[in-house]
Design a binder for these strands. Structure first.
Lengths: 150, 150
DNA sequence: CGGCTAACGTTAGTCTTCCAAACGTTAGTC
DNA sequence: GACTAACGTTTGGAAGACTAACGTTAGCCG
């Protein structure tokens, strides 16, 4: 039987774990975690949201969202206010400070990607992206939400 | 700035997280964890080894190796005996029962891979594997050990 | 032969990500 | 008013990844 090390999905999870490690290390170096970046990024991309909505957008579990928002709020990266129209909900908004933070983390993520993808030329990168996009869209169509670090 | 969702490494970690989840669920369904499979697989591939050696082969930290071996030994999948030539070390050997277990887990991993790679045809799978192998070999050459679930 | 360093294995612990259950408050429907 | 569901919080666990401390053993060196 073919060894597992030749399987594409083994290769995928190995290389992704490596990329994930590089990103985590970069984030940890500036006192951030993957959840922080995911939340700030979602707020920039899609605007203010309730906690539950943010959880749905990012794939972060609602109980972990509480912790992540507590940390981001404590550092002044987001603002959290009750929704006057529906007091079950908070409205989460990114601050100017938070935008700067997200941009700094995005720069770091890009730097990691450059290091990580160094062995591939532009054509190979485009090829890889197209193949992965095909897999990814398939999974979205099966109902799996966005998840993971970057 | 280009959104993070278009970055190849984002796509990679997303799809890999999905694959990892499928594998973990499959293993959990039969009371196994990723570490169990990695250890059994390494013993089949490379033969008996000390705990430290197994840790080096699999990327599993030596303290987690203790726990994983405790669980595998309790279930009769491996045998652990002191090395008479060097009493600092144990010799870890897979049992017949362990080989069966590893094969069952490998079958499951293959099934997951089939499901996961369904959107790609054979040529695309070969292409994906070649690109990932290029990335993976680069990382090995930089000193990163094997890691992750499968 | 004793001192020293390193390897081995174990234990206890932390951090991050992912996930679940229980609870109180609020909103909407009937 | 009763009921159901949504929201947010709290508490907890599992898995993977990692660290530090400790005791035992082995090898090297003067």
């Amino acid at each position: 039987m073919e060894p597992v090390e030749n399987m594409p999905s083994w290769m995928l999870t190995q290389t992704a774990a490596h990329a994930g490690r590089l990103v985590s290390e970069g984030f940890a170096a500036v006192g951030a975690r993957g959840y922080h970046y995911r939340v700030l990024s979602a707020l920039i991309t899609d605007g203010p949201a309730s906690q539950a909505d943010l959880g749905r957008r990012t794939g972060i579990h609602l109980s972990d969202m509480v912790t992540a928002l507590n940390e981001l709020e404590a550092s002044g990266y987001i603002r959290r206010v009750p929704n006057p129209d529906d007091r079950r909900r908070n409205i989460i908004t990114i601050t100017g400070h938070g935008i700067e933070r997200a941009e700094a983390l995005a720069l770091q993520a890009r730097a990691v990607q450059e290091e990580f993808l160094a062995p591939l030329d532009e054509a190979e990168r485009a090829q890889l992206t197209a193949l992965l996009r095909k897999l990814y869209d398939h999974h979205l169509s099966q109902g799996f939400p966005p998840l993971s670090k970057m």
